[in-house]
Structures are given as C-alpha cells and as structure tokens.
C-alpha cells in the first residue's frame, strides 16, 4: 500500500493548517489540536513532524537537525521519513532549506523571511513544573497572571545569585503570552526576537501548537537588576575557530581530555570551507 504525500491525509493536514493559522494569529498562545499518532514515538518529534507534514510541498527543501547537527540519529531518521513518504529534497545547508525542523537548537546562520523553522516541543507549558493542573495554567494564561514564573526566577537568584535556568528559558511573546521556547539553550533565545523567519512549535504528545510570527517581539524574562544573559565560553571552536557559536564539549580520550566544537555542524563546516578557499 502507499501512503498519502507526507504521510498524513489531506483532512488532517487541513486541521493542522487551521490550528497553525490560529497560532500565528495569537502569537505564543498554545492551540490545542487533534494530534495524530505518528510512526515515531511521542517525545521524539511527533509535534514537529505533524507541522512539517502539514506544510511540506513537493518543491520544498527540508533540513532536519537535532542538537544542532544534521547527522544525529533522530534527525537522520526524520529526514529519512520525509524522503520516503514525501520524496522531497533534503539538505544539510541552512541557507538552502525552505523548511527546517529542529530539536533543541536554532541554527547559527541567520534565517530569512522565506524560511520556516519548526520546533519539536516536549512540554509546551512553561508553568507546568510550577503548576501541574492544566485547567489552572490555562486560566493563568488567559489572565496573563505570570507572577508565578517570576517566583521561580526569584528563587533561583536567592539560591544561586543568578537565574539558574540554562535551557527552555521562558519568554514573553509579543508582550502577552508566556511561552516555552522548547529546550533550546538560552544562548539561542535572542535569535527568537524579531526573527525574519516564521517559527512554529509542535508538541504532539501534549497536543498543542504555537507560533512566533516573523518580526515578533520576544523577551526573555528577567529582573531589572538581574538582566537576561546568554552562555559564554572561554574557548573558541577548535575546528573552525568561531568565537560566537554555541559549543559542544567533546571528550576525546580516556583521560577525559576535552575539546570544544560548534554544535551547529553545518555552520562549522561552512566556515572551514570558507577558510580553505
């Protein structure tokens, strides 16, 4: 038997597109949707895959990254899936892609207006660890009652002297909705602010979609006297020499020797090719 283009039937795609339009119309608002069971486990990108499946056309060029890299197994598997069920062209080059599905990173290369970034989201509710009841968190969002989130940040500073949230750092979208940026490192948060590319977020297991439309104001929560800060390294990438990318720490021998390299593999290899030319 054969599957429909991009696996999902057209009715389901329409349902997803409607939900996505709503998400774009209300930036940062979590739109409940009839998440389908995908041939990939929940928690492995089922939300992202459904969004991608609803958007893909035959002319799209798809890039899939996990942890910034195109060659991690889950990224490979999702790319393989869409090659198989949609037959679309794939790429590892950020600049060549029309649609990028990502888990846990935003590419270092600046995105453009004609690109869409699709995030895989494990937990769309930024208040979940503070308030487990869904009925209550929805009310808090409806009333923009976000004092609770600041309690958490306050507590961090009281305990550690600074805000000890290093990834999935909560943001306020368009001055209205408290939103999870998905578990990207806070290093990537500034890339969300006024991004030219449309950013879509899919949480399959939790059955929620949300969006940050192009050029939307995205503010990382902080206190006036404890402003938001991103990670910094004392190292540069040992492969390409970049001093402004997010670095992975790699253990290279049994004695625990470390080296630091770019997490964004396409960005890193692009810089190396440039340097050789």
């Amino acid at each position: 038997m054969t599957y429909n283009f991009a696996f999902l039937d057209e009715d389901t795609k329409r349902m997803l597109r409607r939900a996505l339009l709503k998400a774009v119309a209300i930036p940062g608002y979590q739109v409940p949707f009839g998440s389908r069971e995908m041939p990939l486990p929940y928690g492995w990108g089922t939300g992202g895959i459904q969004v991608t499946a609803a958007l893909l056309g035959p002319d799209d060029v798809l890039k899939v990254i996990d942890q910034g890299a195109d060659d991690t197994t889950n990224a490979v598997n999702i790319r393989r899936f869409f090659s198989r069920v949609a037959g679309v062209a794939t790429t590892e080059h950020t600049a060549d892609a029309t649609l990028i599905q990502t888990r846990h990173r935003i590419p270092e290369t600046s995105l453009r207006e004609d690109q869409i970034l699709v995030f895989q989201v494990p937990e769309p509710e930024p208040l979940r660890t503070l308030e487990p009841r869904e009925a209550e968190t929805r009310t808090l969002h409806a009333l923009a009652d976000y004092g609770l989130m600041h309690v958490k940040l306050y507590e961090d500073i009281a305990q550690y002297g600074h805000i000890a949230t290093s990834y999935d750092y909560p943001v306020l979208v368009d001055g209205r909705f408290l939103t999870s940026p998905s578990p990207i490192p806070k290093f990537d948060n500034p890339k969300l602010d006024r991004s030219p590319a449309l950013m879509l977020f899919g949480a399959g297991r939790e059955k929620r979609l949300y969006a940050i439309p192009p050029y939307t104001r995205v503010e990382s929560l902080a206190f006036d006297d404890h402003p938001f800060e991103i990670q910094r390294w004392e190292h540069q990438c040992e492969l390409c020499g970049s001093g402004e990318s997010y670095l992975d720490e790699v253990v290279v021998d049994d004695r625990g020797t470390r080296m630091f390299v770019c997490s964004d593999t396409d960005f890193c290899s692009g810089r190396r090719v440039e340097a050789q030319a």
């Binding site: 069971e37 486990p41 929940y42 928690g43 492995w44 089922t46 996990d66 942890q67 910034g68 991690t72 197994t73 889950n74 888990r103 846990h104 990173r105 494990p122 000890a164 290093s166 990834y167 999935d168 578990p183 990207i184 490192p185 806070k186 290093f187 297991r205 990670q231 390294w233 997010y246 670095l247 992975d248 720490e249 997490s263």
Partner: peptide, 25 residues
C-alpha cells in the same frame, strides 16, 4: 502507553546541548 512509552524513552535521544548548558551552569 504510547504517550508514556515515547516520553520516558525519549530520554535516550541526544540531549547534549541541554546537558552542555547544565554543565556550564
């Protein structure tokens, strides 16, 4: 079970970007 099994087992996916963030913290 499909939701629970997926999410429990997703922990075996790479998390090294988040882990790196926690490591520096």
């Amino acid at each position: 079970s499909v939701e629970a099994s997926g999410f429990v087992q997703h922990l075996k996916l790479p998390h090294y970007v988040d882990f790196q963030a926690e490591l520096s913290l």
